[in-house]
Computed example of a mutant assay.
Amino acid sequence: MAHFHRLPGPIADIWAWQHRGACRDRDSGQFFHPDGERGASRGRREREAKKVCQHCPVRAQCAAYALATREPYGVWGGFTEHERLRLLREGWSVSSSGEIDIRRLEARLTTVTAQ
């Protein structure tokens, strides 16, 4: 006998948070670097993308997704690809409810940078 209660919900339920993202109707080029982008221009683009994330209602879900899936490109949840790599190397945790603490992650980046 199949145990249907153990099956995940519809895929739309898993991705529904993306519909509420502050980035939803923006140019994706703001969040993903073009080939060859380096230095100051990359830093400016990433800072602008992170500003969009600062007040996003789904920032925690976005960051958790990017860390859990090891998203290799772009700014997700206010973290650049390099910041996410550092967080993954240092370890990060998700609460039992699947939530992450954005402030704690930002503090961890500050601590890692200062070392």
Rank of each mutant, 00 (worst) to 15 (best):
G21V: 02
G36I: 00
G91N: 11
I100F: 12
R84Q: 00
V112E: 08
I14H: 12
G43I: 06
E37V: 12
P57K: 03
L105D: 00
K50M: 13
G39F: 02
G39A: 08
A16E: 06
R20Y: 03
A66I: 01
G74F: 05
L87T: 11
E37R: 06
C53V: 03
A68F: 10
S95M: 01
R38M: 14
A16P: 01
A49G: 15
E90T: 08
A66D: 06
R24E: 07
W17H: 07
R45H: 03
K51E: 11
D35S: 04
A16N: 06
P34M: 00
L7N: 02
S97A: 15
Y73M: 12
T110I: 10
L109A: 03
R45A: 11
R26F: 04
F79N: 06
G39P: 01
G43W: 08
E106C: 02
G21Y: 04
Q18Y: 12
S95G: 15
G78A: 04
A22E: 01
P57A: 09
D101C: 10
A68M: 13
E48M: 08
I11S: 11
H55A: 14
T111P: 01
G9I: 01
V58W: 04
H3K: 00
M1V: 07
C23Q: 08
I102Q: 04
D25A: 12
F32G: 05
G98N: 00
A66Y: 03
G74E: 01
R89L: 11
G39M: 07
T111F: 03
R42D: 10
R24I: 05
R6Y: 10
R84Y: 03
V75T: 03
P8A: 09
V112Q: 05
L7I: 05
G36C: 07
W92F: 11
E90R: 14
R59P: 15
R20T: 01
G98D: 02
A22P: 03
R6H: 12
G39V: 01
A114R: 12
P72D: 04
H55Y: 01
R44K: 11
H19Y: 09
Y65L: 00
T69C: 08
P8D: 01
H19T: 12
E99K: 09
S28P: 13
